[in-house]
């Protein structure tokens, strides 16, 4: 591997830029494919398509090339992130579960009585107003946004930023009635049906969850389904 290639991979990772290292396994020749600049790599269309699919599936793989050799596509996806709005009881279970699943977790809650280190040991807690925090965190295709406050003053601004982002999952706690009211408010703010349909509400897979930890389980299961099988229908 050339020095420039190694440094380019590290730079892409630092910039949270999805990339695939394409290696010819016989010659060792390598090119770096960037999802946001597919032409730079000068790869043929089949290989480019395979790179995009590998990034989506988050799975490195080999690929037979035209000359009968093998290519190795190594995926460098940015880290998974989860932004949880509301430092509530469910969050005390959800944050450590998400960390276990490999997410970089940020809990956002401007109510300082909720967002204490004591309640969230070892978790990044952001006490800015949710829309400011969300804009700064800038959700990407590897980010899940979950709102759990039940309070439109806090949840809605976060959802507005999330809906304008590429977040792969957006979920919001609340009953069907609460959710219908939420959707109405957001519609009045100019969001159309496809955008509103991105919000998972009521949040989580239907598993009869009752306790905070069970609700967190339903939420992480739903997020995993969206991450790993985005093409599958709603599993609720």
């Amino acid at each position: 591997m050339r020095r420039e290639t190694l440094h380019a991979i590290l730079a892409a990772r630092e910039a949270k830029r999805p990339a695939v290292l394409v290696s010819e396994l016989d010659s060792g020749v390598q090119r770096l494919f960037y999802a946001d600049a597919p032409d730079v790599s000068e790869l043929d269309p089949t290989v480019r398509a395979a790179c995009l699919e590998a990034l989506r599936a988050d799975r490195s793989r080999t690929l037979a090339d035209e000359g009968g050799g093998s290519l190795f596509l190594q995926v460098f996806n940015p880290p998974l992130r989860m932004v949880i709005v509301g430092a509530v009881h469910i969050t005390q279970a959800l944050a450590p579960m998400a960390a276990l699943l490999g997410y970089e977790v940020t809990v956002v809650d401007p109510r300082r009585a909720f967002a204490t280190d004591e309640r969230f040991p070892g978790v990044a807690v952001d006490t800015d107003w949710p829309d400011d925090a969300l804009r700064r965190l800038s959700p990407d295709r590897r980010t899940a946004v979950v709102t759990l406050t039940h309070d439109p003053k806090l949840d809605d601004p976060a959802l507005e930023v999330a809906l304008s982002s590429d977040a792969f999952y957006i979920g919001s706690l609340g009953s069907r009635r609460t959710h219908a009211a939420r959707v109405e408010r957001l519609r009045a703010r100019g969001f159309d049906e496809p955008a509103l349909a991105r919000i998972h509400g009521p949040i989580g897979l239907t598993i009869g969850a009752k306790s905070p930890a069970e609700i967190a389980t339903a939420v992480t299961a739903e997020i995993t389904a969206r991450l790993r099988e985005p093409a599958a229908g709603q599993t609720r």
């Binding site: 020095r3 190694l6 440094h7 991979i9 960390a99």
Partner: peptide, 18 residues
């Protein structure tokens, strides 16, 4: 907490080469 095992490897590789 992240499971970025390969990350450490590549950073180590860059450091060693440096």
């Amino acid at each position: 907490m992240t499971t970025s095992h390969s990350d450490d490897v590549l950073e180590t590789a860059a450091r060693w080469r440096k």
